[in-house]
Design a protein around this nucleic acid. Structure first.
Length: 453
RNA sequence: GUGGUUGUAGCUCAGUUGGUUAGAGCGUCGGAUUGUGGUCCCGAAGGUCACGGGUUCGAACCCCGCCUUCCACCCCA
């Protein structure tokens, strides 16, 4: 007896209903991307480990899924190395490929390898699964999809503005109320300078990013634990607790950062972006949030995060500007800005709010139900004619009991059943039943096409 | 990676201090109805109680291990 089948921890199957919903999300996003001239690319599921290692920090390296070399993967390993039991060292000998951890690093690699063919600014989007050997939780998987959209090779803030228009449009189409939070890494850097802890910028941002979640006291505790001076923490308080409209916040922060060149640059960038946003009449609420840091420390300019207003869930979209995207692969001077839509979380939000269009699962329009093999032949000819007219139809493949065939149509939410028996076939017609009303009429295939179109 | 939690029919779950043959609802299949689904009625099939050890006369239940689920950290989408 075979044992019960299973799938690896943190992975999922997607049944038809889930695929219909996921495709609805992906298609909505793709349609909007296309409106702004973004082009789709794909990269391999696996990359060379040399491409991936060291790009996500020490923690990230641990979370990479590594692929065992093919064939006799131990052939190049000495006995002493095996006995040494040094996993990290051994890994590099027996594995040279890994599953991608995100879409940004493979994209940077792609840009470097194809820079002769690309014209810049290059606007690309990419929707593919990524893998992380993290411990799964609700809404956290070992295989999940990212939807990345980036512009590389342009420093213009117009790119930031376009990305926010895209966010605005995508969520308008999906019917989700959201708030876009923005910040700027340069402002954070300026703040760190002003409180005299410039070298602790990463620790500071990681700590204040948690304000929403753990509260002010815990944030201050964490700051102290990271070695930030009490004086610096005190100076930080007014910034963390900043309230009011975006204009008021900007005024306050300008005075705080008066002597920080980089800080004021960040403020100016935010001001320019907000100006465009109001000029374009973007309807989504845009809020300047100085506690927004996004742990990733490769951001260098604008930072975005999108939160659903009606559902308690983490951010559903995030991103920012990162200078020197391709520097690690030896090509300097290419700045990028991009965002990533969290498809799995958007899926959860749409589920909770029941915002899916009602006809998502209604693909087949007509089911042909027959009483015998002769009728079956007639049915497949009718089906061919209807498909040629662009109408999705199915033929029940066996002349089983009508009850069974009707149930099938019902379960699959097919709106019409074309019943064919001896009497119908004699007239070269079908008995078309409307499954919702229960009414049925005898009609020709051409008439059926007109009725269900 | 740390600490906790979960697993019983296809699904959602009951199951007494350890005691005969492990139950229900939904779903599936069949019948009522030999040309008609979604409601109602009748019936049936379906289980190595996640898996592997142990304790016991006896284990779904107690102990150990292991996998899985979910939760809080860490980190992150």
């Amino acid at each position: 007896m075979a044992s019960k089948p299973s799938i690896p921890k943190g992975t999922r199957d997607f049944a038809p209903i889930e695929m219909a919903r996921r495709n609805y999300i992906f298609n909505t996003i793709k349609d909007v991307f296309a409106l702004y001239g973004f082009q789709q690319i794909e990269t391999p599921a696996m990359e060379n480990l040399s491409t991936l290692m060291g790009k996500y920090g020490e923690e990230g390296d641990k979370l990479l899924f590594k692929i065992l070399n093919s064939g006799d993967f131990l052939s190049g390993v000495e006995q002493t190395e095996l006995e040494g039991r040094n996993s990290v060292k051994l890994t590099s000998k027996i594995s040279e490929k890994g599953l991608r951890y995100d879409l940004t690093v493979p994209f940077a690699r792609f840009v470097v390898m194809n820079r002769d063919k690309l014209s810049f600014p290059f606007k690309r989007f990419q929707i593919q699964p990524v893998w992380r050997a993290d411990r799964p939780q609700k809404g956290r998987y070992r295989e999940f999809y990212q939807c990345d959209v980036d512009v590389v090779g342009s420093n213009s803030l117009l790119n930031e503005v376009e990305l926010m228009q895209i966010v605005d449009e995508v969520y308008r189409r999906l019917g989700i109320n959201v708030c876009i939070k923005i910040n700027n890494r340069k402002i954070l850097t300026g703040i760190a300078e002003m409180i005299g802890e410039a070298d602790k910028i990463v620790d500071i941002t990681v700590a204040i990013d948690k304000l929403d979640k753990i509260g002010l006291d815990k944030v201050n505790e964490e700051l102290a634990a990271k070695g930030i001076s009490a004086e610096a923490i005190a100076k930080l308080q007014p910034v963390i607790l900043l309230k009011g409209s975006n204009e008021e916040k900007l005024q306050t922060i300008k005075t705080v950062l008066a002597s920080s060149e980089i800080g004021l640059k960040g403020v100016a960038e935010i001001e320019e972006i907000l100006e465009f946003i109001s000029l374009l009449g973007v309807k989504t609420e845009v809020e300047l949030d100085l506690t927004l840091a996004r742990g990733l420390n490769y951001y260098t300019g604008a930072i975005f995060e999108v939160k659903a207003k009606d559902v308690q869930i983490g951010s559903i979209t995030g991103g920012g500007r990162y200078d020197n995207l391709t520097g690690v692969f030896g090509v300097d001077g290419l700045s990028g800005v991009g965002i990533s839509f969290g498809a799995d979380r958007i899926y959860d939000v749409l589920n909770q709010l029941e915002l899916y269009p009602s006809d998502l699962m209604q693909a087949t329009k007509v089911l042909f139900a027959v009483f015998g093999n002769e009728e079956l032949k007639f049915a497949i000819e009718c089906a061919k004619e209807m498909r040629a007219a662009g109408i999705p139809v199915e033929v029940y493949p066996e002349p089983v009991k009508m009850k069974k065939q009707m149930s099938y149509a019902d379960a699959k939410n097919i709106p019409f059943v074309a019943i064919i028996g001896e009497t119908e076939m004699a007239e070269k017609k079908v008995m078309l039943k409307n499954m919702e009303s229960g009414n049925q009429t005898l009609c020709s295939v051409q008439e059926v096409i007109q009725m269900v179109k």
